[in-house]
């Protein structure tokens, strides 16, 4: 916020060293002006950006996150931006599952010669975020609720299953699965979608059951889905030893996150 109380977006930028960071420098050398909203972190490649970094950025107060890399085909490391694209795409969906507007995350390409383009992208993204307001506001989430959802999203971004799926996407589509059977892109996306939503639900339940014991029905109410959808995930969490039954209230067993 400025002294006048007007909302000024806080934007975190991850820029690759070779193209987009150089493009941002060129904007400076050319004196192309843009709003002072972005805080840039230099990485060697957009492929270095772990989705968990982006979630962390949101949880530390970013209202929007920009990930900028080399144009497709121009990656300094040949394929880094391709992996960035897969990861950010999946992360966008994850944010959506967490009730965070996907417009708050942006992946785009800026070459070393595109100073003007960089300035324009930051200006436009700033306007977009300015219109959305602070993170959580247009989502209708309290800060506690927001942080809990981000914690769940972070857990998913760190999950072995998700990271494996996203990492293998390129190979699976190009070379087929472990049996060298070609994988249909649509089938892959459906699998990823299913895994993301299941993992996110499990993570949310785990976050909910961190401080207090909850019944399946209470959990279902808190996350806004039917108890029959929650039940198998509670069972899975219990089986994995992540939550345990700590008591029974009436006829409902209550679960809480384990040590």
């Amino acid at each position: 916020m400025t002294a006048q109380g007007q909302f000024e977006p806080r934007i975190l930028g991850f820029l690759c060293n070779w193209c987009s960071y150089a493009g941002a420098d060129l904007a400076g050398v050319s004196r192309f002006q843009y709003p002072p909203t972005i805080r840039i972190i230099r990485v060697m490649c957009s492929g270095r950006v772990d989705p968990a970094f982006v979630v962390r950025g949101f949880s530390r107060g970013a209202d929007g996150v920009m990930v900028l890399g080399c144009h497709p085909g121009d990656c300094h490391y040949a394929t880094g931006n391709y992996y960035a694209q897969n990861r950010i795409k999946a992360l966008t969906r994850l944010l959506e599952l967490a009730g965070i507007l996907p417009e708050r995350l942006m992946l785009d390409w800026v070459s070393a010669g595109e100073g003007k383009r960089f300035a324009t992208l930051v200006t436009d993204f700033t306007e977009r975020i300015r219109a959305l307001g602070p993170l959580g506001q247009s989502e209708g989430l309290s800060n506690d609720e927001l942080q809990q959802r981000l914690a769940a999203a972070s857990r998913v971004a760190h999950s072995q299953q998700i990271r494996w799926l996203i990492g293998r996407k390129r190979d699976m589509l190009d070379k087929g699965d472990v049996y060298s059977q070609p994988v249909d892109p649509e089938a892959f996306e459906a699998l990823l979608e299913e895994t993301l939503s299941t993992e996110y639900l499990k993570s949310r339940l785990l976050e909910l059951a961190t401080d207090r014991a909850l019944s399946v029905k209470e959990m279902a109410g808190a996350v806004g889905v039917a108890p029959r959808v929650v039940l198998p995930q509670v069972a899975a969490l219990e089986q994995a030893g992540l939550i345990s039954m700590v008591g029974i209230e009436g006829r409902s067993p209550k679960y809480m996150r384990g040590e």
Partner: peptide, 17 residues
């Protein structure tokens, strides 16, 4: 070459740069 693609995707976060 230091791109970090491996680190950002490691399922166990066992790789860093």
């Amino acid at each position: 070459k230091g791109c970090g693609v491996c680190g950002a995707g490691c399922p166990e976060q066992a790789i860093t740069m």
